[in-house]
Design a binder for these strands. Structure first.
Lengths: 343, 343
DNA sequence: CGTTAGCACTCTAGTGCGTTGAGTGCTAAA
DNA sequence: TTTAGCACTCAACGCACTAGAGTGCTAACG
C-alpha cells in the first residue's frame, strides 16, 4: 500500500515527533543522515501521506504530526523493536531473582519499576483469584456477634472479610462447619466455591448442624468477599503531568479523575487485554474519551497457560511504542515464570 | 491586640477570599451589609493590618489577601464554627449506622465521604495495629518451601506475609510451634509480640522442637510483616486540580508527587496530629515545601482513649476552615465510637 | 519522469504599546 | 474620627506589527 520511501518518511516523522512533541517539517527530515532527499521531495510525499490519512497538520504553516492511523501503521509495521539497554535488562531480571515475596507485593513492585523505567503511568491488574483454588478457610469470632472470615488461596493470596454472626449460633457449631468446609472444599477452584458449598456439603451440614439456614448465610457472605478478587495497582500517575501535551489542567484532570474510578479502569484493562500477546490501543481506540489522546499498551501474565492478570502502560499517543512494548514483553513473561515457580 | 473593628474586617477579608480566591478590595468589604464603614476607613484599617502582618498585597494596585499569620489568627480566634447543614449531618450519621464492615473498609470509605463533602483531598491513617493484640496466628504451607503467615488482631485486621521455610522442617513440627504460639501469645499486644516470643516461649520451643533456630527465624520474619501496620488512604487527590491557585501544572505536580510517597506522607500525618483534638497546619507550618500553599487539618480517632489513627484534609491555604473543622470533629468522634463498639 | 531549487503565501508566536479599570494612599473637609 | 475626592499605580486586555517556520506550486534540471 505504501511505497518503501513513504514508509521510511513516515517512520522518520513518527520517531521525530515521539522525541520532540513538535510538528515535524520537511527540512528537518531531509537533514537527517538516513534520508537522502531534498525537502521538496519530502514535502510531496508528506502531502500524499496526509491525503492517505497517516499524517495531520495542526495548521497550514506547521509541520506534520502522525494521525491515529499513522501511529497504528507505525506500531503494526514499522516500529523497530530495539532491545533494552543491557543494564535495564539486568535490572528487570534482578528484580525476580530477589527473595521471595507475597504475590501482590511483587505485582505492585513490578508496577513501580515499570513506571520508573518508562516515565509513563503503569496500570496492573493483580492475579485473578478466580483461577486459583481454596487452600484454607477460617472463621474467627471477634466480639459478641462478629467474626472475621479468612480465605487463603493456593497462590498464597489472603482475602478477609468481617461478617456478623446471627445470635444463637455457638462457637462449637461454627468450628464444626469450618472443619467440614476445609475437609470437603480444599482444592476446589474459587469460582466454584459457592456452588460446591450448596451442592456438596449442603445436605451434610443440614444433618449435623442446628442453625443451618443462618450459617449458610454467613458463609455465603464470607465467600462473596473473596470473589471481587482482582486488585488494581497504579503507579507513576503523576508522570502524565510531565508530558507536554498534558500541560493543560483540564485535559489532565479528566485523566487523573479516571484513575480514581477503579471499576471503570478495571473494565478497560480487561477489555483491552483480550487475546494473548501485547495489545496496543491508540487514542480513540480506547473506550473512554478521557483517553482520546492516550495510548494503552497491555500484556497478560499467566498461570499454567491461563491468563490471570494484566500489566499495562498508559502514555500519550506520542509514546515510545518500541521501547514500551519491549519492556512489557519481557516483564509479562518474567511474571508468568515467577508465578509458575510459585504454583 | 487587635481592635474589634480590625477583627471584623479581617474576618470579612478572609471569608471573602476563601469564597472568591481573588484579592479583596476595600470597596467590596464596605458594600457588605454587616460592615458599616466607608471604603476609605476600611482602607486605613487594611493598611494597619498589613503592617501588623495579617494581610498581604500581591501588587500595589490590587486588593489584600490574608497572610499565613492572618489565617492563623482567623483559625485561632475568628472562625465561626458553624454547624453543618442538617442533611450533611444526617449523611455522616447514616454512614456509621450502616451494616458492619471490616475496619479498614470503614476508614477508607470515610475518606471517600470526606473528600466528596469538602472537595479537598482526604488523607487517612488506618488504625495502628500497634495497640491491638494478637487474636490468632497461623502458618499455612503453600509449596515445597514457602508458607503464608497470617496474623489476626483483636480488631479483626488481617495481616499476611509469604515466608520461606528452611529445608528439613516438617509440617508437623510447624504445627506444633503454631499451636504453642496461639496458646501462649493470644491476647498479647502486637508490639510486644517479638519480645514475648523470645522470652516466654523460647525455652519451651527449644525443648520440644528440632529445628529451633530456623523456625525462630521464620517466626521473626512473619511477625515483622505485621508491624508496619498502619495504612495510608488517599481520596480525592484530583480535587487539588479544581483549586484556582493550582492551575499551574508545576505547583500541582509537586503536590501530587508527594501523594505517591507514602512514607513521607505518613510521617507528616503522624507529626501533624500530636496532641488531641483538631490540629491545623497552615502553609509553611507544614514541614514539606510542596505544601507551602496548602493547609492540613487533622484529627485523631481512638480506641479506649488511646489515639490509634488520624484523619486529615488537605486543601489550599485558602480553605473553608470552619466547615472542614466541623466535619472532621464529627467524623473523628464517630469513628472513635464505632471502634469502641467493635472492641 | 522523478527530483530539486526558488518563491510567494500562510499562519502562529512573540513583542511593543496604548487603554481600561480596579484599587490604593493621601489630603482635606465634615 | 470618619469620609469624600483625587491623583497615582499596575495588571490585564486588545491590537497591530514582525519574525520565522513551513507549505504548495511552478519551472528547471539531469
Amino acid at each position: 500500500m505504501l511505497t518503501e520511501r513513504q514508509r521510511m518518511i513516515l517512520t522518520a516523522i513518527v520517531d521525530d515527533y515521539i522525541r520532540s512533541a513538535e510538528p515535524v517539517g520537511s527540512r528537518s527530515i531531509s537533514k537527517r543522515g538516513d534520508v537522502g532527499y531534498s525537502p521538496a521531495t519530502i514535502r510531496n510525499e508528506m502531502a500524499d501521506l496526509e491525503e492517505l490519512g497517516f499524517l495531520e497538520q495542526p495548521h497550514t504553516s506547521a509541520g506534520r504530526i502522525p494521525s491515529h492511523k499513522g501511529y497504528r501503521y507505525y506500531v503494526d509495521h514499522l516500529a523497530p523493536f530495539n532491545l533494552l539497554a543491557p543494564n535495564e535488562f539486568k535490572m528487570m531480571k534482578a528484580f525476580f531473582a530477589d527473595k521471595l515475596n507475597a504475590i501482590e507485593q511483587v505485582v505492585q513492585h513490578a508496577g513501580t519499576i515499570l513506571s520508573h523505567m518508562t516515565n509513563y503511568t503503569s496500570i496492573l491488574l493483580g492475579p485473578e483469584v478466580f483461577h486459583t483454588s481454596l487452600r484454607h478457610f477460617q472463621l474467627l469470632p471477634l466480639g459478641e456477634n462478629t467474626a472475621v472470615a479468612i480465605i487463603v488461596t493456593s497462590t498464597g493470596q489472603v482475602e478477609n472479610k468481617t461478617v456478623s454472626i446471627p445470635p444463637g449460633v455457638s462457637v462449637s457449631e461454627m468450628e464444626k462447619v469450618v472443619n467440614l468446609l476445609n475437609r470437603k472444599l480444599t482444592g476446589v477452584p474459587i469460582y466454584k466455591l459457592k456452588s460446591a458449598l450448596y451442592n456438596e456439603i449442603g445436605q451434610e451440614m443440614q444433618r449435623h448442624v442446628e442453625h443451618f439456614e443462618e450459617l449458610m448465610n454467613v458463609l455465603d457472605e464470607a465467600l462473596d468477599g473473596g470473589q471481587d478478587g482482582q486488585r488494581l495497582f497504579l503507579s507513576g500517575t503523576t508522570n502524565m503531568l510531565n508530558q507536554p501535551e498534558f500541560r493543560d489542567i483540564d485535559k489532565v484532570k479528566s485523566i487523573l479523575d479516571l484513575f480514581e474510578e477503579t471499576p471503570t479502569l478495571m473494565k478497560m484493562m480487561i477489555s483491552a487485554s483480550t487475546g494473548t500477546g501485547i495489545q496496543v490501543r491508540i487514542g480513540t481506540e480506547n473506550d473512554h474519551e478521557a483517553f482520546a489522546n492516550c495510548s494503552l499498551i497491555t500484556a497478560t501474565y499467566a498461570i499454567e497457560g491461563e491468563a490471570v492478570g494484566t500489566i499495562g502502560i498508559l502514555g500519550p499517543t506520542r509514546m515510545e511504542y518500541a521501547r514500551v512494548i519491549g519492556i512489557l514483553d519481557i516483564l509479562s513473561k518474567d511474571l508468568t515464570k515467577f508465578l509458575s515457580r510459585l504454583h
